[in-house]
């Protein structure tokens, strides 16, 4: 018993040491570049078997009630990880209440969904499966269907050993989604490569910082790490009209009055490929979206030229997946 105690103490100590080492190593990395936007990591270690399994499940229509749509239906990797519609269409043509966020780089978001109701990608995966307007199914039905696929069962067993289980499906899909990383030209610039960006793009980045966009759209994911009220300097929803439940944002989760119209700040990576914009899909183009942001979030006007330069900068955030650049919306 004594030996076991010592072992566990040692392993605890080791864990602690590693944690401290991790914390220390994080500081110099930040000190290297004090840019508000940080490059994507060069390498992400994931179990390739899980990624492959998750890829299959991500494209598996059996996850929906009537076998009509897969995750990829609304988060197509060919179209920026979104469906490019103001709101998504679920089983039986049901229109969802909200604009689908991109699945690319979603592993870098601090929470999932516009209102941040899921703390992890694993948690997120369960959401659309159960949403009656999306996939309209449930774990029992999904696992029953998948359990009949012997090849799939064998693959799952080889990895997890305990068969078709919700947690395994969630883990595989989330692992696959973590692999959806799209390094861009801007990342190369951040890593110190010269002449990657044009003068206009560099100026656009400067304006992006100067005008204060970067106050919210910062970090590795150029957003996706905080909540912000939509309409800081003006009442967006009054202007738009027709307020629905989805417009209440984080309030739907916390029921705190101050959280009304508060949304997760979306990542701007691949933003040029994911039109239309905002949770309500109300901005058809990047220019429109930038206008709305200036008006309601920054509370200031800007010359069209500056906005144009910012849009140019935003295009540099369009990355590559598996060596192929994502295709812009238009």
């Amino acid at each position: 018993m004594k030996t076991r105690n010592m072992q566990s103490t040692m392993s605890a100590a080791l864990t602690l040491t590693l944690a401290i080492a991790g914390a220390l190593s994080a500081i110099p990395a930040q000190a290297q570049s004090n840019e508000p936007i940080q490059p994507l990591p060069l390498e992400i270690k994931l179990d390739p078997r899980r990624v492959a399994l998750g890829d299959k499940l991500f494209n598996d229509k059996r996850l929906s009630k009537d076998n009509s749509i897969a995750c990829a239906g609304c988060h197509s990797l060919a179209t920026g990880g979104v469906d490019r519609a103001p709101v998504s269409t679920g089983i039986g043509g049901a229109k969802g209440p909200i604009n689908a966020p991109t699945v690319f780089n979603s592993g870098f978001n601090f929470r999932q969904f516009w209102d941040g109701r899921a703390a992890s990608l694993e948690e997120q995966a369960a959401g659309p499966i159960h949403n009656p307007k999306e996939m309209g199914s449930n774990w029992q039905a999904v696992t029953a269907k998948l359990a009949q696929d012997q090849a799939l069962v064998a693959e799952i067993n080889a990895i997890y050993g305990d068969g078709v289980q919700p947690k395994n499906i969630q883990d595989a899909i989330a692992t696959f989604e973590r692999s959806l990383v799209t390094p861009s030209r801007f990342d190369r610039h951040l890593r110190g490569e010269k002449n990657v960006l044009s003068a206009d793009e560099l100026q656009g980045y400067q304006l992006f910082k100067n005008y204060g966009c970067v106050a919210c759209h910062q970090g590795t994911n150029v957003g996706g790490n905080m909540f912000q009220v939509f309409g800081v300097m003006g009442d967006y929803f009054k202007k738009r009209g027709g307020i629905n439940d989805a417009d209440l944002g984080r309030y739907n989760v916390t029921k705190v009055e101050a959280d009304k119209h508060v949304f997760k700040v979306p990542s701007l990576r691949n933003v040029a490929a994911t039109a239309p914009y905002f949770h309500d899909g109300s901005a058809a183009t990047l220019e429109d979206a930038v206008d709305v942001m200036f008006r309601y979030q920054l509370g200031r006007a800007a010359p069209a030229k500056d906005k144009g330069l910012i849009v140019k900068f935003l295009h540099t955030l369009t990355g590559e997946y598996k060596g192929k650049p994502l295709v812009a919306s238009r």
Partner: peptide, 16 residues
């Protein structure tokens, strides 16, 4: 001193 909120957001999954 921190130019972005990644360090402030990153403890969340760790805490969980």
């Amino acid at each position: 001193f921190n130019t972005n909120y990644d360090p402030v957001a990153s403890p969340l999954p760790l805490i969980a």
